[in-house]
Design a protein around this nucleic acid. Structure first.
Length: 727
DNA sequence: CATAGCCGCCTTTTT
DNA sequence: GGCGGCTATG
């Protein structure tokens, strides 16, 4: 094998790599950890490495590369194709890989191979039902909260039984009931959620050494990108597959770990050397992307974090423009000035495709959009309104899902009366009762509707029409998806109903979107060897708009900081450096979470090649409330002489007391001051709006994020003061 | 049974 | 400020 890699050594392109990059490329067998900083040419290293493997005689078929996003997978495919080394290599996300494995070993995994994959909205429906079924109140046990908790359990490989055993207080006991019921509902639907894909695969590999060995045989070389973002389930899956041969190659950067909230465990990368004692470790510390100005700022910021592997950012580019920090009055002005600055850049010859605006939360996109529209600047939102989240698309897909998997009751309930065909709640309940009593699925119940005595004659005939239509559509299942989708569109009556609405509102975007869906299906039919409806639906469930970003168009890119990972731009704007936004208020005082927010900003900063514009607004309207903001503590950590660097904007109005209901000159001895962030056990996060000093009976007025303003007795309120404020 | 309008909950980030 | 779910009304 060394001979073959020697061939790579002689390759001219290979010689252009730095010594550490060469190291990372040329090791063929055994475990290898590459700690790769931002802009270190990591993607290049991975593709070269794939080429080196193939030149060393490894069959493409035996190579499996895992990424976190479909977009990263697509890019890797293209890049390895450019090296003439793509066909046969398995390149996909963890989730896609799991779908494949689960379908192949459906019996051992105890699921049907035609399983539906439920997205977040489907999950909410199910968990809400589960909470109700358990006799719990959906306001005390908010479905979203339950779902988050269940998701966290699954990512940590806690199944229903193991969690039940450890649940000891009221909340965890209730949660375990809901979890159990939720899983029952999913299984009744022959459905899995995103987390199940991982958990079920991890358990499948744990419990079936033969399957594990077979996969190790199939995937003799395993590459995992962004290893710092693996959660427990993904970590186990990767380790299981590689256990037989130890050919596991992972790359990552602990400083860019930003998915803790979905179970990513930074420890996975930190303990790699313990897991694989003969692992080689290569650090890629040179940065080929950003100017020293930008890297200096990034380095200062991240140095504040304690939980990390020490790593340098070594600049290779010449000194560039200063990093700009701006302060604005409010978010509208901030957005407007960003637009103006973009205009300036364009005047200097910068292309719009070299500009990105990266914000903490999606909701911040709108104000930026408005400003860009006003200034006639073209933009594209990377993952705005998700295509597959649109109502019309979900309706169409629900029909297809029911055709592929009649047990999918969630989808069936969505479409049974969409468009309206006179099948109402009462009818549905009666069929459901009948189906439950006769131990058949809801869809089968519809087929037997004529035998259900409680149903009215009219209801029976309406059901018959619907049921026959679905049966009729099923006869067209020949693998090709596009033609079927077209038929569904027409025969379901959706087309007609959308046309009516479209004519009324003068808006045919709905029809266009369905057209786009059918086009996409046609593309799938064309590009896939053995197209099938089940395969199509399972794939599509793992896609979102993230993958639609088109770097070739002449537009400014708008995206969240999370979505920005892996991308680079000549110029990057990061607005909203404010307490509560970045770091986000949800992370509270938890130091680990604050560190993650810091990494998030680090990721944002290191996207910029030469121009970096950071800003915050003194006032910002959040959920309809005008709030006086506090600058983000991160601003002080950037190593810029902050007070001097901030160019006070000429339009700045002075700190006017907006509500005018309290004297600003409070005595420092008072325990509470205006705009202080406080947390209440029940009402959550809020801001102090007033304080009446009455000794032991002092009253504090707090405006909570729920929108309520409350007067609380200090001695009873039990308010805790949120730390992390401006120093 | 269908629809309009109201109420409450919600939003961090993604597969 | 927006969506989804629930309720009152036709």
């Amino acid at each position: 094998m060394t001979d073959a890699s020697g061939y790579v050594m002689r390759n001219a392109a290979f010689k252009q790599l730095t010594p550490s990059q060469q190291q990372a490329v040329s090791q063929i067998d055994g475990p290898l950890l590459v700690i790769a900083g931002p802009g270190s040419g990591k993607t290049r290293v991975i593709t070269y490495r794939i080429a080196a493997l193939i030149e060393a005689g490894v069959k493409p078929y035996n190579i499996c590369a895992i990424t976190f996003t479909n977009k990263a997978a697509e890019e890797m495919r293209q890049r390895s194709e450019a090296l003439g080394a793509s066909s046969g290599i398995h390149i996909s996300t963890f989730h896609s890989l799991c779908v494949r494995i689960l379908r192949q070993y459906a019996d051992s995994a105890n699921i049907k191979s035609g399983f539906s994959i439920f997205d977040t909205k489907d999950q909410s429906k199910c968990v809400r039902q589960a909470v109700k079924d358990c006799g719990l109140d959906t306001s005390n046990f908010a479905p979203a909260r339950m779902l988050n908790a269940i998701s966290a359990l699954k990512n940590n490989l806690e199944d229903v039984d193991s969690f039940k055993a450890t649940a000891d207080d009221f909340f965890t006991k209730s949660l375990s009931l809901v979890y159990s019921r939720y899983q029952d509902i999913l299984s009744k639907n022959d459905a899995v959620d995103f987390d199940d894909l991982l958990m079920k695969t991890a358990f499948l590999l744990r419990d079936n050494p033969d399957i594990c060995a077979a996969l190790g045989e199939r995937f003799k070389y395993l590459l995992v990108d962004e290893y710092q973002d693996t959660n427990q389930a993904q970590y186990r899956i990767a380790n299981s597959i590689a256990s037989a041969h130890s050919n596991i190659f992972v790359t990552g950067d602990p400083d860019q770990s930003i998915y803790r909230w979905r179970g990513a465990d930074i420890r996975n990368i930190l303990v790699f050397e313990e897991d694989w004692p003969d692992a080689k470790v290569v650090k890629l510390e040179e940065n080929f992307r950003s100017t020293p100005n930008i890297l200096g700022v990034a380095d200062k910021l991240i140095a504040t974090n304690r939980r990390r592997k020490l790593k340098k950012l070594i600049p290779t580019r010449p000194q560039g423009k200063d990093v700009v920090v701006n302060v604005f009055n409010d978010e509208a002005e901030e957005a407007h000035e960003i637009a103006k600055q973009i205009e300036k850049l364009v005047a200097e010859g910068v292309s719009l495709r070299d500009v990105a605006v990266c914000y903490r939360v999606n909701s911040m996109s709108r104000i930026v959009e408005e400003a860009l529209i006003k200034n006639k600047i073209a933009y594209q939102i990377v993952r705005g309104v998700e295509f597959y989240g649109r109502k019309e698309i979900r309706d169409m897909l629900a029909y297809l899902k029911v055709l592929a998997n009649p047990s999918d009751e969630v989808s069936l309930l969505r479409i049974i009366n969409t468009p309206t065909r006179g099948i109402g709640k009462t009818t549905i309940t009666r069929v459901q009762q009948y189906s439950a009593a006769s131990n058949i699925s809801f869809f089968e119940g519809l087929g037997k509707a004529q035998q259900i005595d409680s149903l009215a004659k009219a209801a029976k005939s309406k059901i018959a029409v619907f049921f026959n239509m679905m049966e009729q559509l099923k006869t067209g299942l020949d693998g090709k998806v596009a033609s079927l989708a077209e038929r569904v569109f027409v025969e379901s009556g959706l087309k007609k109903s959308f046309q009516i609405v479209g004519a009324k509102t003068q808006d045919d975007s709905v029809l266009e979107n369905v057209g786009e869906l059918i086009n996409a299906a046609a593309k799938y039919d064309q590009q896939t060897d053995q197209p099938s409806l089940v395969d199509y639906l399972q794939q599509i469930s793992l896609f979102s708009d993230v993958d639609v970003y088109d770097p070739s168009t002449e537009r400014v890119a708008l995206m969240t900081l999370h979505a920005a990972k892996g991308l680079e731009f000549e110029n990057v704007f990061i607005p909203g450096l404010e307490e509560g936004i970045l770091p986000h208020e949800r992370c509270g005082t938890d130091e680990d979470e604050i560190e993650e927010e810091r990494r998030l900003l680090f990721v944002g900063i290191t996207r910029a090649k030469s121009g970096l514009y950071i800003s915050y607004a003194k006032y910002r309207t959040i959920r309809g409330q005008l709030l006086h903001t506090i600058p983000s503590p991160f601003l002080y950590e950037l190593g810029l002489n902050f007070s001097e660097s901030v160019q006070e904007n000429q339009y700045c109005y002075d700190d006017i007391d907006v509500d005018n209901d309290i004297n600003d000159n409070e005595q420092p001895t008072q325990p509470f001051f205006r705009d202080q962030l406080v947390r209440h056990r029940k009402f959550g996060l809020g801001r102090v709006k007033g304080f009446e000093d009455m000794g032991g009976n002092s009253i504090v007025t707090v405006k909570f994020n729920t929108g309520q303003t409350r007067e609380l007795m200090v001695k009873y309120a039990g308010l805790s003061i949120e730390s992390g404020q401006a120093k």
